[in-house]
């Protein structure tokens, strides 16, 4: 049962990001570079937040404290990625064989967001996955065997959220629409805060609101990237 659990949870958390990567990123070396750079950016932000967490000894045991700094550093690095991509956009376009690069400015936002999210997801789930190989599962003291699937679902939610947040964030700075940037930061804090409830085993209270936020964020990102529902419906109905 336990090996099945490992592969199922891996599929749930990383299946969708993998599909998105192979359909939209994998065929272009420049996009892959950007994605890796973004993943590296997330790692740096994580390193900094862990340094802060480590340095402030008296607050180490309070997860909320570490969380606040982690969110701040991540958003800082997202802005850093934005600056970096806008500076290097022209150069990337020159070296790219695929001249479609940059046809939509938010394409880069999407790719870097995916890199950001994948790395954060990997870090969130790797330890849990390692224990999911078994032979045991949670339940001896407390918790249930559904802990692993909820962890995987939360990880998927975070990966997708990071992708969409990057799109909204970049578009917000491009358009000087700081409402969008505000949404990103606030919803990031909100979802992170929700996950504090995991320690009380209120998994439903974490997952359902998180996925609602994900849906709203996905819609805003869709709109920010210039998508319109009408045209989407039109594309679905018309034969093409």
């Amino acid at each position: 049962m336990t090996l099945a659990e490992f592969f199922s949870c891996s599929l749930l958390a990383f299946g969708a990001p993998l599909v998105m990567f192979s359909l939209t990123v994998a065929n272009d070396p420049v996009r892959i570079i950007i994605m890796i750079a973004a993943a590296f950016g997330w790692l740096l932000s994580f390193l900094l937040s862990s340094l802060v967490w480590y340095a402030v000894v008296p607050l180490r045991s309070y997860l909320a404290f570490g969380m606040v700094f982690a969110v701040i550093f991540q958003e800082g690095f997202r802005y850093g990625m934005y600056l970096l991509l806008r500076k290097t956009e022209e150069g990337l376009k020159e070296i790219s064989e695929n001249h479609n690069i940059g046809s939509n400015k938010l394409e880069m936002a999407y790719v870097s967001g995916l890199g950001f999210g994948t790395m954060s997801g990997a870090f969130a789930l790797v330890n849990v996955l390692a224990d999911s190989v078994g032979p045991g599962t949670l339940g001896l003291h407390n918790g249930t065997e559904y802990f692993f699937v909820t962890s995987a679902a939360m990880t998927l939610c975070m990966i997708l959220l990071n992708t969409f947040w990057s799109v909204i964030f970049f578009s917000g700075f491009d358009d000087k629409n700081y409402l969008k940037v505000g949404w990103v930061i606030l919803s990031h804090f909100f979802v992170s805060g929700l996950s504090l409830l995991n320690s009380r085993e209120l998994y439903a209270a974490t997952i359902i609101p998180s996925y609602i936020v994900l849906l709203i964020t996905a819609y805003i990102a869709f709109r920010s990237a210039g998508g319109s529902t009408a045209k989407l419906v039109q594309s679905l109905t018309s034969r093409s």
Partner: peptide, 15 residues
């Protein structure tokens, strides 16, 4: 958030 979520998952069940 991701880092936070990581910590929560890693260090679950500590209130």
């Amino acid at each position: 958030m991701a880092s936070f979520s990581y910590k929560v998952l890693l260090l679950i069940l500590c209130t």
